[in-house]
Structure formats: C-alpha cells, structure tokens
Design a protein around this nucleic acid. Structure first.
Length: 494
RNA sequence: GCCCCCAUCGUCUAGUGGACUAGGACACCACCCUUUCAAGGUGGCGACGCGGAUUCGAAUUCCGCUGGGGGCACCA
C-alpha cells in the first residue's frame, strides 16, 4: 500500500458507545497507526431527532478511555474539517444540487404515509419493498402544485434501472448487485439534512479517506455509495467490511442480553487494555499463538489481510480471562489507584489502616495486591475485602463449621497470645506468627496446617476463602485481630 | 418475500493442495503445587456442516445443498 492511509471512525451520537462500534474504531485506529497514517473521528449527527451532545460526549470519553486517539476530529480541527456533519450542511446541499443539475437526482414529494402504504402492499404481494419512482415522472405543473401546498421534498438519487453495480471488498473480492434490486434512495431529507449515504460519500471523498473499514452490515449499502462516487466523478476508497460481532444467541450484538456499552464495562471494572486486547482478537488474529498483546504490539502487527470474514460471537468468559490477566499484571500502584473508587463507593472510604503497621497508601496497596488474583473485574473487589472494612462479620456455614472444630478454641487462644506479644504486626510478622503457631500446635496437638489456618481465617473474616491469611492479619492490624477473636471467644463461652 | 455475506473444537482462532493422527487460547474435567480461593504446572475432552467435481493428493479450489447472519427507512 504505497498510498497514504487515511481512515475514519464515523459514529452517530445516538446512544452509548457500543462494543461493535468500538471494535470498528479500534481496527481503523490500528490500521492508521500501523501505517503511520491518520485516524479521523467524524461525528455523523444528521439524525436531528436522535442525536444528542450527551451521546457524543460518551463516545469521545469511551474512545479516550480506551486509548484510541484521533488526529482530526472534535477538538482537533484539521484542514479538512469541520468534523461534525451538522456543520457541513452547505457542502451536502451543493453536492445534491450538483446531482440535481446533472439530472442524476430528483425531488420527491411522496408523503411518508404513501410510502409506508406502498411498502406494505409490496410486502403483502411478496415483493421486495422499493420506491416506485413515481416522482421521477413529475411534470413542472405537478411540482408547482406540491410546492404551493408547502410540501418539502426530499432528493432521491436516480439509480439506473438496468445493469449491475459492483465493488471490490479487499477481503471478499468482487461483490455485485443488480441495479434493479436497488431503488431510488433518498440523499437529502426534507429537513435539509443529508442521509448517511450522501454525507458519508461526500465526506470520505473530501476528507481524502483512503480505506473504509466498517461493519459487515454496510455491504448492502455499498453499491449505492459506489453509484454516488461515480455520479460525482470520484474514485471510491478501498472497502474492508468487518465481520459482525454476534451475541451468545447468534444474533447481532444488542442491548438486552448483557452489557454492550463500553461505559458499562468501564464501570464494572474492566481495564481498557483488556478490552482492547480482547476486541482486537475478535475478527483479527496476529497469525501466531500470542494472545496477550499490548496496544503497541497490536499496532505493530495489525494488517487488514488478517481480518477474518466470518462473524464472531462475543464471549464474556474470554474477556474475563483477559481482564484477569491484566488485573494481575498491572503495577500495584496503578491497581490501587484504579480500585480506590470502588472501595469508596462501597464503604465510603478507600482504606482502613489505623492501628495497623501501614500508611494508608501502603495499606491499600497491600490489600489490592492480595485480592487482585481472585476477581474477574475491579467491581468485584469490594465484596472480597468486606472483612477489612466491616467489623460485624457474617459467618458462612463453612466458617462456622471451621470454628466448631475440636481444636478451634485452642488455636484461636494461641493466636491471640502470639498477636498480643507483638509490637508491630506487618505481613512479615504475621507470617512468623502463623509459622510459629503451626509448629507449636503440631507439636502440642499434632494439628495440620489447615486445622490451624481455617479457624483463624474463619474467625477473622467470617469465611474460609479469601486473600492470603498473613495479609489478612496484617491488614486488620493487631487490635482488630485481638478484638475479633476475643469477641468470638466470649460469644462461645456464653 | 427479494438481495447480500458467512461456514474449522461449545466460544475466539491458526491453517491459503502434501509438514494435519488439524495447532493455540477461553470454558470444562482430572492431577500436581498449596495456608483457603485464585494463580501456576501437567494432562484430558473437543471441530474441518452435507453432497458432488478437480487432483496422485483436499480443511484448503469449483458447483450445489443445508445452516447461520445481515440488509431491504426522510436511522446510521
């Protein structure tokens, strides 16, 4: 590819940033970065009723969070802007007029009621729903009549009745459509805004887009776009249609079954690098067995010819695996920073370090470092560390059983003794305590490791599962450990 | 209904006529490790949709079928 790579992501701000859209954005971005080209962000806000600034903000925020940056677009006006289609209406109008003047487009005054009725009838007769081109044959008198009634027309493209229109998809080769399966589609709406077809073709040309990477479901529209390029006398860009992302049920990924918006994943504690890594591998592969790929790796290795053509099912389990990997490998201070908001939300505070051997920051890091291996996402962390924030423990059945063990009382008493004798209870000291306790009780009562560890863990946390026990002890600190166990002992003796 | 796209383990995929008793990853199962859970290690389960054709030889090429998906708006 000798020519420069200019690609774009062109979302319409009508809702959340959808995973499918993100994947499209990601592939475009990787393509641009790999080829040292440009990645353009264009906001397709031509649907006045559905577009909102809030949705646009969410999209920009989502992209930024994922690290997908743009070279031209909102906040980065380049020479080929503006990058909101609503700011380009004059451009579309003049181009529509050009087609009108050259007889390749015409005004259509048909009401939406008539069009709906027409389509209903066509479907009823088992015919494909298509515009019947009635307004192609309007006389000047007809037109004047409509105009005097105040009817605002749309502008339709005059699609050839005969022949076929084909285009080359880089991955699939030649795809052709018989022109009679296309109809005279609308290019300008009656509110003066262009439709997607016109706007995207005009913009892609004017913004000098070299490659259009977009989702599969655009294939049926592509011949219309090719027709428009030709009508304007332009060369179409290269097309690469990306396979759709399907849900578990095999349909197009949509709301209702699970989270589909990036904001949801962000909120639930998925790391951007995990999402990027997972999404990059949905419909693309590096060609070897490497699974963990950083953004740099992806940029380095991304080429369009390794994009697959068959649809891919979104698999949360696999995303979770990537997220777990990145959670485990993130530097601990970054992890602490990322986890803090979740703790604050759940407990109103992000640490509980008073009366421990640690500073607040150290305490948080110790906590995070010891719990990170147990969760799929950051959002699950608060539930795993309740023992460190809440003193009223709810004991699980297993925990109660562990404390009912014959030696449990003796184990806990010995534990409190050891802890009481300490000045500083950090993780090293806690480990020493546990080691000594094991040796002592092995000698005295021939107890195994579990018989020692389980009652202590259960008494301290209310559960027999959880982070490393020495860490638990260090996180609670000397006084809380003693308090929890003695409370337990008094309730037993009652 | 019409048009278009797609088809390898349950899922993501490698594979571009012979190196395929089809490789890797997720999930699942077993074992090991172990201070619980997890992580890690080892092993296991598990796929070329069907039928023709081309070829000495097809997962790989061609045709048909079947199946799945998408599109058919003054939404993108």
């Amino acid at each position: 590819m000798a020519e420069s790579a200019r690609v774009r992501f062109a979302p319409s701000p009508t809702g959340e940033l959808h995973l499918g859209n993100v994947r499209t954005a990601l592939f475009n971005w990787l393509f641009a970065r790999h080829h040292n080209g440009s990645f353009i962000l264009r906001i397709e806000d031509t649907d006045v009723a559905r577009s909102s600034e809030e949705a646009e903000r969410a999209i920009l925020e989502g992209l930024r969070w994922l690290g997908i940056d743009w070279d031209e677009g909102p906040g980065k006006e380049g020479s080929l802007g503006p990058y909101h289609q609503s700011d380009r209406l004059a451009i579309y109008r003049s181009h529509a007029t050009r087609l009108l003047d050259s007889g390749l487009a015409y005004h259509c005054y048909c009401s939406s009621e008539r069009l709906e009725e027409m389509r209903r009838e066509q479907r009823r007769r088992g015919r494909p729903p298509r515009y019947d081109r009635r307004c192609r044959a309007l006389t000047d008198a007809d037109r004047e009549g409509y105009e005097s009634e105040g009817t605002e027309p749309v502008i339709r493209f005059m699609t050839p009745r005969q022949g076929e229109t084909s285009f080359r998809d880089l991955l699939r080769g030649e795809i052709s459509f018989a022109n009679d399966t296309l109809d005279d589609f609308v290019i300008m709406k009656s509110d003066g805004y262009p439709t997607y077809h016109l706007a995207s073709v005009v913009d892609d040309h004017l913004m000098e887009v070299s490659h259009v990477l977009r989702a599969d479901d655009w294939i049926p529209s592509s011949p219309r776009h090719v027709l428009l390029y030709r009508a304007f006398g332009w060369d179409p860009p290269h097309f690469v249609h990306l396979p759709l992302i399907l849900d578990k049920a095999g349909g197009k990924l949509s709301k209702r079954q699970g989270d589909v918006s990036v904001a949801d994943y962000k909120q639930n504690g998925y790391l951007p690098e995990a999402l990027v890594n997972y999404l990059a591998l949905l419909g693309w592969s590096p060609g070897d067995t490497q699974e963990i790929l950083s953004a740099e790796d992806l940029i380095d290795r991304f080429t369009w010819d390794r994009i697959s053509v068959s649809p891919a099912v979104f698999d949360l389990e696999r995303l979770n695996w990537f997220n777990r990997w990145y959670i485990r490998h993130l530097p601990v201070d970054r992890m602490a920073h990322a986890v803090a908001p979740y703790l604050r939300e759940a407990y109103g505070r992000e640490e509980q370090s008073e009366d421990t051997a640690y500073s607040p920051a150290e305490w948080l890091k110790l906590l995070v470092d010891n719990v990170r291996e147990e969760v799929d996402s950051l959002g699950q962390i608060p539930a795993h560390v309740a023992f460190a924030f809440i003193d009223e423990l709810a004991y699980t059945g297993e925990a109660a059983e562990a404390m009912r063990a014959p030696a449990a009382g003796e184990v806990l008493a010995a534990f409190v003794d050891k802890v009481r004798s300490l000045e500083i209870l950090d993780i090293a000291a806690a480990n020493t305590v546990l080691q000594n306790l094991r040796a002592l009780l092995k000698e005295r009562r021939n107890l195994g490791a579990r018989e020692v560890m389980f009652p202590i863990r259960a008494g301290l946390t209310g559960s027999v599962h959880g982070p490393n026990l020495a860490a638990v002890i260090a996180l609670l600190g000397r006084d809380r450990c003693i308090r929890r166990v003695t409370q337990l002992q008094s309730s037993f003796s009652r």
